[in-house]
Design a protein around this nucleic acid. Structure first.
Lengths: 152, 152
DNA sequence: TGCATATGGTTTCATATGTAACTATAACGC
DNA sequence: GCGTTATAGTTACATATGAAACCATATGCA
């Protein structure tokens, strides 16, 4: 069977086009998780990401949150406004630099985290469960390589 | 070295969390491509996807385009409005069902396609070039498995 | 037929998101 | 110290997106 040729100008077959497939898969997965915590806590994906980062790194500034989540500072600012309003994140002013905020999860915020983090992990486990061990290892290796170059 | 334990309630490490990694990678890749054709043709991602589908399947209705692109009908309707306006897509009314539209690429639309499709393919090639042959094979296999279950 | 319901597609409205402008504070150079 | 420039963060505006209401046509069925 001769190899099929795919001249560059031939119509793209979206369903075999890698960037498209990644996009569909990624959106489906992220959306499924987000639906969960959105329903329970009215929490957007960006808000949850901010909380997840603050759970790990207490006392970050908004800019540092933006760096860690790869979100832009406006998105972070908005997420923080809502999270502080909801009482899940505390915000103080940095001693010695009044521009900077010092952020952290509140008690209530930790309680939310204790519910959402396991949900997120469960989704991830469910995703990985579709693969066998060998595939899981390859997947991580492949992601490492794709991401190593990619941020450009 | 004892295996690290990851209790469910421990803070999520976003950079190791699969859905997050997929999302970052997918967005970076899709955005890089979209930037290209956006600059050259002021074409959004949804609009390009519509064109790609019409290049393969001439005469689809808007609903069928929506099915093939996994976009919702509102997004398709808007993309079509702009594409028809730009003169890249032709729209007629179906004989025997005046609700349905019959869509296709115009000459000008094909010309755009002839430029954009190779650009898209080039990005895909560049992405795959970061992997060796064995990894590429595993990646496709893994994507197949992940997507086989997932649409549910 | 003629009414109820379904379908293709567009419009409306409310919300989300990104870019640029802006405010306040801090750091730098002299 | 004082004007310039940089940085943290917010606000404003313009555009994108999604859900629901809507219009037109088509279908099912009494």
């Amino acid at each position: 069977m001769p190899g099929e040729s795919h001249p560059d100008h031939a119509p793209l077959e979206l369903e075999h086009f890698l960037p498209y497939r990644l996009s569909i898969l990624s959106n489906a997965v992220s959306q499924a998780i987000a639906d969960d915590y959105q329903r329970r806590f009215d929490l957007s994906m960006t808000e949850w990401r901010v909380m997840a980062v603050l759970a790990r790194f207490d006392g970050l500034s908004a800019r540092e949150v933006a760096e860690r989540t790869l979100m832009d500072k406006v998105a972070v600012s908005r997420a923080l406004a809502k999270l502080v309003e909801s009482g899940w994140v505390t915000r103080a002013t940095h001693d010695g630099d009044k521009r900077r905020s010092v952020l952290g999860l509140s008690e209530a915020g930790w309680a939310v985290h204790e519910v959402v983090a396991p949900m997120a992990r469960a989704h991830e486990r469910e995703l990985l469960a579709r693969l066998d061990e060998e595939e899981r290892v390859w997947l991580l290796r492949i992601l490492d390589k794709l991401q190593a170059t990619e941020p450009k």
